[in-house]
Simulated assay, not measured.
Amino acid sequence: MFDTMRKYAARWRASTRAESVSARERRAHNLFEAAAVYVAACAEDDQDRIDEAAGWVSPEALSFGVNELACRAVIALARERDEPPGAVARDLLGLPAA
């Protein structure tokens, strides 16, 4: 009788662990999280991570997130350098000053 109870408890614990792992894997990703991972992976030339992040959200959402990240990054750098955002953006892209 105790052997049967022990087997049942072991099966129940195993199924609970499997459910929690699959729930974490299926967790919905935020579009900004996807954009941050995507851009960082591009900077590090990590194709596997790029593909993974690109699969988290729709292409339109990823594009919006990358655009928002770029805007925030240029604004932060402009404040840090005490320069206008346009000058910082041109400098980052290697373009001549306007």
Rank of each mutant, 00 (worst) to 15 (best):
R81D: 08
A89G: 06
K7I: 05
G65T: 06
Q47N: 09
V66K: 02
D82W: 00
A78C: 04
S15K: 15
E60A: 15
P84I: 13
R27Q: 15
T4F: 04
L95W: 09
A43G: 10
D82L: 04
A41V: 00
N67K: 10
S63H: 10
S58M: 05
H29C: 02
A61R: 11
A73N: 00
E83V: 03
M5L: 14
R49E: 11
D3W: 05
F32K: 09
R81I: 00
S63T: 13
D82E: 14
G86F: 07
R90M: 12
A28D: 09
A97F: 03
P59W: 06
R6H: 05
P84T: 10
Y38S: 04
D91L: 11
V88W: 04
V39P: 02
E83M: 12
H29G: 00
A40K: 08
R81N: 06
A43F: 04
I75P: 01
A87H: 01
A98I: 07
E60I: 11
M5K: 05
A97C: 01
M1Y: 09
G94I: 07
D82M: 05
D45R: 14
V39F: 03
W12L: 14
G55A: 08
Y8C: 00
K7Q: 11
A23W: 05
R11P: 01
R6E: 12
T4L: 11
M5D: 11
A70Q: 07
S15P: 02
C71V: 08
R17I: 08
A54W: 01
A78E: 04
V66T: 07
T16E: 15
S15R: 15
A18R: 15
A40H: 08
G86V: 08
G86H: 03
S63L: 09
L93T: 02
Q47T: 13
R26M: 10
W56E: 01
A34P: 07
A98K: 10
G55H: 03
W12P: 03
V37S: 07
A87E: 11
E25Y: 06
N67C: 07
N30S: 15
R49G: 02
D91T: 12
Q47Y: 03
E68F: 04
R6Q: 10
F2I: 07
E68I: 09
Y8N: 01
D51Y: 00
R24Q: 13
E19L: 14
A76L: 10
M1N: 06
R24K: 12
R90N: 08
R26E: 13
A98D: 14
L93A: 15
T16V: 13
A97G: 04
A97Y: 00
A36T: 10
E80V: 05
G55L: 04
A34H: 04
S22F: 08
C71P: 02
V74C: 00
A35V: 06
F2E: 10
T4Y: 03
L77N: 07
